[in-house]
Nucleic acid binder design. Structure first.
Lengths: 234, 234
DNA sequence: CGGGAACTTGAACGTGATCAAGCCTTGTGG
DNA sequence: CCACAAGGCTTGATCACGTTCAAGTTCCCG
C-alpha cells in the first residue's frame, strides 16, 4: 500500500478532482475548492488481492471509499468458520460504523486488487455537519448498506444451494460494465452462501455442464442470464 | 388504530414529553419546547397483533418509532414464500428508507400488540438538518439496522437448525426486562431462520424435552441460558 | 519441472424437506 | 354449555439435498 493524498509532492492529488468515483461517492456535492481543502488528511491506498484492509474489533479511526476492485466484509464465527456478510464495489463505503462507534464490526479483505481512499472519521463527521450534500450522500450510503445486507438474507441465504448460487452469479453480473465477471474462489462462494466449498464446486460444475455459465481463462464467466433467473426463483 | 398527537383535544399529548421511549428514541436531544413544536404532525398509533403497519413497495411518507411491542419486517419471495429480515423492539425505527427513497422495502407486521409513533418524512428531515443531536440519533439508528441485519445473516441464517434456533431464543431473551419472553409462532420462527415450520416445531419440542426451555400458559418461556449458548456455538 | 493450493469428484451419511395424519386450542353458534 | 369447525401445533415416514471425509486432478508459480 502506498500513500498519495498526504504527500505534498504527489502530483496525483489533482486526480481526486477528476476521480472517476467522485461523481458518485461521498464528496460528490463539494466544489473543487472545498474538495482541495479536505484532501490533506486523505490517503489513497492500493489494496492487493487477499490483503486485509482492517480487522474485526480493531480500533476504527477511518472510513474507506472504494474506487476500484472488490472487497468482502467477513465475520469470524465462534466455531472457527467464517461468513461473508457483504460485497463492496466501486462507490461503496466500508467501515461506516466508525462514525458512531469505536471498532470495526467486520474484517475487510480485497477479493480483487482494490483502490481505496482512507478518510479519517473526523473529516467525515465535520463535512457531514457543514455540508448538506455530503450529509445526504452519507444517508444514502447507510441505506445502501442495509439494502445489501437484506439482499444477503433474502437472496443468498434462502432456498436451495442451486438457487442461491444462481442469485449470486446474477448479483455479481450486475456489476454492469462487462458482460463477464471475475469469480470468487469456491471457498468464498461457500462463505457467501452459507454452504460448503464442495457443494459450491459441485453446483458451479453442474451449471457449466448445463451451459448456464462459461469459464474462460483465469476467472471470468459469461451467462445464460435467462436460465439462471429461472433457477433463482426456487 | 387511533390517532392522538394530531388531535388538539388529546390530553395525552403531554405524554410525549414524558414518553418512556423519549430517552432513547430519535428526539432524545430535543428540549420540551422544541418537542412540542414538532408534535403536531405526529400520530400515535396502536397496532394490534398481526396488523400490517405498512406494505412492501407502497408509497413511504413516514417513519415509525416503536414505543412498545414487537414488529417483524418481512420480504415476499418470488416463489410465494416469505422471509423475515428483522425484528424491531421498543426504541427501534421502521421505514427509514423513506428518508432517501420513495417506497418501503419491507412489509411491517406486529408480532405483538404494538404502540408506534408515525412521523412524516419531512419532519425528520428538517430536524435532521437543524438539530445535531437528532442527526446523531439518526445515524445511530441506521447503524443499528445494519448491525441487526448482520446478526440475521451470521446468527440466524448460519449453521444447523438447532444452532439457529438456540441463537434465536437467546436473541429474543436479550429483550432484557423479564426472564421469560413471548414466543413467535412456529411459522414465524421458520421464516426467521430459513427453515420449515415443521422443523421449527421439532427443534422446539426437542429443546423442551431436554429441559432447555419451558413453556408456560400461552406463549412464554424460561431458559437454560448456558445450555442454549453451548448449542449456539455450532 | 516439481510442489502446493485450489478445485473436482466419489461414496456414505445425516439433516432437513416433504407429504400426510392426528392433536390440541380457540372461538362460534346452536 | 356443549359441539363443532378452523387454525396452529405435533408427529411420523420417506426422500432429497447437502455435508463429510477421502482421493484424485488441474492449474499456477517458483
Amino acid at each position: 500500500m502506498k500513500s498519495n493524498c498526504t504527500n505534498p509532492a504527489w502530483i496525483g492529488r489533482a486526480e481526486c478532482a477528476v476521480c472517476d468515483v467522485r461523481g458518485f461517492v461521498l464528496f460528490s456535492g463539494l466544489s473543487t475548492l472545498e474538495l482541495d481543502a479536505i484532501l490533506q488528511p486523505i490517503d489513497n491506498l492500493r489494496v492487493p488481492q487477499n490483503a486485509v484492509l482492517y480487522e474485526q474489533d480493531s480500533a476504527a479511526p477511518c472510513v474507506y471509499t472504494l474506487r476500484s476492485g472488490l472487497i468482502k466484509l467477513k465475520v469470524d464465527l465462534p466455531n472457527g468458520g467464517r461468513r461473508i456478510v457483504r460485497l463492496l464495489r466501486p462507490g461503496d463505503v466500508a467501515g461506516m460504523e466508525t462514525l458512531v462507534g469505536e471498532r470495526y464490526h467486520h474484517t475487510a479483505v480485497a477479493l480483487q486488487d482494490a483502490d481505496v481512499c482512507r478518510i479519517p472519521r473526523e473529516v467525515v463527521l465535520r463535512l457531514d455537519q457543514t455540508n448538506p450534500a455530503v450529509h445526504q450522500a452519507l444517508m444514502r450510503r447507510w441505506q445502501r448498506s442495509v439494502d445489501q445486507a437484506d439482499h444477503f438474507i433474502v437472496a443468498l441465504s434462502t432456498g436451495s444451494a442451486e438457487a442461491r448460487m444462481a442469485r449470486l452469479l446474477i448479483t455479481l453480473g450486475c456489476t454492469g460494465s462487462q458482460p463477464d465477471t471475475s469469480m470468487p474462489s469456491r471457498e468464498d462462494m461457500g462463505a457467501l452462501l452459507g454452504i460448503t466449498t464442495e457443494t459450491a464446486s459441485r453446483v458451479v460444475a453442474e451449471f457449466r455442464r448445463r451451459g448456464l455459465i462459461h469459464i474462460e481463462k483465469g476467472d471470468c464467466v459469461a451467462y445464460d442470464h435467462a436460465g439462471l433467473t429461472r433457477l433463482a426463483q426456487g
